[in-house]
C-alpha cells in the first residue's frame, strides 16, 4: 500500500508540473494584458507599467517560469491581480465552497446511480429498464450548463421555489446553525440537483452493465442453486462484485465532475473555485488561473488514486496496481 501511495504521489507531482507549465504558457499566450483597460490616459499607462513591475511581468517568460515553479513548490501562489490579495487566501475561501457543492452531489449521485443501475440491471430488457435507459442517455446527452439553466429558469425564476444564485442569503445574519444550514440547503438545492442528476445518470449506466455481467456469472447460479433470493443475491453478491468497477469508473468521472462543477457554479453564481476560475480567466489573473488549474489537476489525481485504492480494497483479488 505504501508503494502504491508513493507511486501515486510521484505521478501526481509529475502531472501537477505538466499541468502547471501548460497553464502558465497558455495564459501567457492568450491575447490581452492583465492590467490593460480601455482607460488609456498617460497616468493609467504609468500605473499599468508599475503594476507589471510589481508583479514581475516585465521579466521575460524564461525567467518568470522557473520562479513560478519554485514558488509553487514552496506553496506560494503569489498575489491575485484582480483581488489584490494572496492567491492562497482566495483558494482557502473558494475551495471549501466548491466542496460544499461537489461532495453532496457526488454522494447523492453515486447512491442514486447505483440504486437505479442495479434496479435496471436486475430487470434488464424490461420496458422499465428500456425507459430508464432512454432517460439516463437523454440526460447525459444534454450539456450540463443547459440542465442548470433549465433548472434555474423553471424552479427559481418561474416557480420561485429556490434561489437562482449564491450560496447563502445575501448579507444575511443567521440566528442559529439550523438557520444557516437551512439557508445553505435552500441555495444548494438546484446546483446540487443539477450535478447529482448527471452523476447519477452516468453511474447508473455503468452500474446497469456491471450488474448484468455479474448476474450471468457462475457464483450467481451457485447462490440461486443454494436457494438464495434475488434480493439477497443482488445485495450480498452482485453489489460486492460490481463495487470494484464502480470505484474505477468514479476515478474516471472525477475530472468531468470538476469541469461540470465549474459550469454549474458559473450558472448559479456559486462562489466556488469554478466560478472564480471563469472570472480569473477573463481578467487574465495569471497567478489565480494557474493556481486553480494546478489545484484542480491535483484534486483529479488524488481522486483517481483514492478511487483506485478503493477499487483494490473492494476487489476480491485485492491487488493494487501502482
Amino acid at each position: 500500500m505504501l508503494r502504491f501511495a508513493a507511486a501515486r504521489a510521484r505521478q501526481t507531482a509529475i502531472v501537477a508540473i505538466i499541468v502547471t507549465s501548460l497553464a502558465f504558457f497558455l495564459v501567457h499566450a492568450a491575447p490581452g494584458d492583465p492590467f490593460s483597460t480601455i482607460d488609456t490616459s498617460v497616468e493609467s499607462a504609468a500605473a499599468r507599467a508599475e503594476m507589471r513591475v510589481r508583479y514581475g511581468l516585465d521579466r521575460p517568460l524564461y525567467q518568470q517560469y522557473p520562479a513560478m515553479l519554485m514558488n509553487f513548490a514552496r506553496g506560494e501562489f503569489g498575489t491575485s491581480f484582480s483581488q489584490s490579495r494572496p492567491v492562497s487566501a482566495v483558494l482557502a475561501e473558494v475551495i471549501p465552497d466548491t466542496l460544499l457543492l461537489m461532495l453532496p452531489a457526488l454522494t447523492f449521485g453515486v447512491l442514486l446511480g447505483v440504486a437505479l443501475g442495479t434496479w435496471q440491471g436486475a430487470r434488464a430488457g424490461s420496458s422499465a429498464d428500456r425507459g430508464w435507459s432512454t432517460v439516463t442517455l437523454g440526460v447525459l446527452s444534454v450539456p450540463e450548463f443547459l440542465i442548470a439553466l433549465i433548472a434555474a429558469t423553471l424552479f427559481a425564476v418561474r416557480l420561485g421555489w429556490f434561489p437562482a444564485t449564491g450560496m447563502l442569503r445575501i448579507g444575511a445574519t443567521h440566528s442559529s446553525f439550523a438557520d444557516l444550514l437551512g439557508d445553505y440547503l435552500h441555495h444548494a438545492a438546484l446546483p446540487v440537483a443539477t450535478l447529482t442528476l448527471t452523476i447519477a445518470c452516468a453511474v447508473a449506466r455503468f452500474q446497469r452493465t456491471a450488474v448484468i455481467g455479474a448476474l450471468s456469472e457462475e457464483f450467481v447460479r451457485t447462490a440461486r442453486a443454494k436457494g438464495a433470493t434475488d434480493r439477497r443475491i443482488i445485495m450480498t453478491h452482485v453489489l460486492r462484485r460490481t463495487a470494484a468497477s464502480l470505484c474505477a469508473i468514479l476515478g474516471l468521472l472525477f475530472p468531468a465532475l470538476i469541469g461540470g462543477a465549474a459550469i454549474v457554479e458559473d450558472v448559479f453564481a456559486w462562489p466556488g473555485a469554478g466560478h472564480t476560475l471563469v472570472a480569473a480567466v477573463s481578467s487574465r489573473d495569471y497567478p489565480l488561473v494557474i493556481a486553480l488549474v494546478t489545484v484542480g489537476s491535483i484534486a483529479v489525481c488524488v481522486g483517481s488514486a483514492l478511487a483506485d485504492a478503493a477499487a483494490a480494497w473492494v476487489s476480491p483479488s485485492g491487488a493494487v496496481d501502482a
Partner: peptide
C-alpha cells in the same frame, strides 16, 4: 456575479 446570473437573481427575487 456575472451578467446572466444577475438577471436571474432579479427575476427569482434574490
Amino acid at each position: 456575479g456575472n451578467a446572466q446570473a444577475a438577471v436571474r437573481a432579479v427575476l427569482a427575487g434574490d
